[in-house]
């Protein structure tokens, strides 16, 4: 049982949770994830770790309600318990000093670009952060990102905050301005990662994406998360979750992410009706 030390609701449906998990807090590195199960009949869902506090023995996660499992977690209060949290899983991000790095986060994806942006900065890169949200009510981590970025840009789809438009527009603008970019990290919805990856591919800029596949065990045992990278089958849970974005078959990833959409809808509706 893993105690929720803090629970803060952000906007309509984003939850910032600080969870007591000392073993995970001790070992977690940027880019790694946990699998959690909120209650006895719950499913196992992967969530990438945003932050950790070794002294307090806690990890911070940002979770957006998109279905029953995430809504159920959102309904838990401070001092409640999550039945299972396991990790840190996956490979840690490969962070090196390369020069100028642009980290592109979409929605709760920003919760994952955050620790990596920090790590890129710490090893001496010039770091530009682009954060994109549907609208202002989905905005997270602005102050935190500001404090670790050399440049920070925020876009919203409807222009309710920052610049109106998509993260990909902003990235393209920077490239067109002649900014020399050595590496791009992109984390967010699969379609956004695909669009960004297509742009950087054109310009030959090395790009890393963190893939949010469906998982069950998260330790390489089941293969639910398999994806194709450079034409080869990989398991996002143990071979990733980060891969060379230019090699990733995003269209397969998107299809596989939608595999249970009917079941997810049914489950979510049942949950809402019973609530």
């Amino acid at each position: 049982m893993y105690q929720i030390l803090e629970h803060q609701k952000i906007g309509q449906n984003i939850h910032k949770l600080v969870i007591k998990a000392p073993l995970i807090a001790r070992e977690a590195k940027p880019g790694q994830f946990v699998i959690l199960r909120s209650y006895e009949n719950g499913e196992r869902i992967p969530i990438t770790i945003c932050d950790k506090d070794k002294e307090r023995g806690s990890i911070t996660l940002y979770i957006q309600e998109v279905g029953k499992s995430t809504a159920k977690i959102g309904s838990l209060k401070e001092n409640d318990y999550i039945v299972d949290v396991v990790g840190p899983l996956g490979k840690a991000a490969n962070i090196e000093k390369v020069g100028t790095v642009v980290t592109v986060g979409g929605g709760v994806g920003c919760a994952i670009t955050y620790p990596e942006t920090k790590a890129y900065k710490e090893v001496g890169n010039y770091v530009i952060s682009i954060m994109g949200f549907r609208n202002v009510s989905f905005k997270i981590l602005e102050d935190e990102m500001k404090s670790i970025s050399d440049e920070l840009y925020i876009t919203t789809d409807d222009g309710s905050y920052g610049e109106k438009g998509f993260v990909s527009d902003k990235l393209k603008e920077l490239i067109n301005k002649g900014k020399k970019i050595d590496e791009v990290l992109v984390i967010g919805p699969a379609i956004m990662m695909k669009v960004v990856s297509d742009i950087t591919k054109e310009y030959g800029i090395k790009t890393i994406a963190s893939l949010n596949s469906i998982m069950v065990d998260g330790t390489g045992m089941c293969g639910a998360c398999r994806i194709e990278v450079g034409g080869k089958t990989k398991f996002a849970c143990v071979d990733g979750p980060e891969f060379d974005a230019h090699q990733v078959d995003f269209s397969l990833l998107m299809k596989r992410l939608s595999m249970y959409k009917d079941e997810e809808k049914l489950s979510y509706e049942k949950f809402i009706n019973e609530r």
Binding site: N41, E43, R44, S69, V216, C222, Y260, E263, S267, K270
Partner: peptide, 18 residues
């Protein structure tokens, strides 16, 4: 088998794993 046995998918939607 993991979905079936460990996660009890045969009792979906009482259990959440499909």
């Amino acid at each position: 088998l993991t979905r079936t046995n460990l996660m009890k998918a045969y009792r979906f939607p009482e259990y959440d794993t499909p």
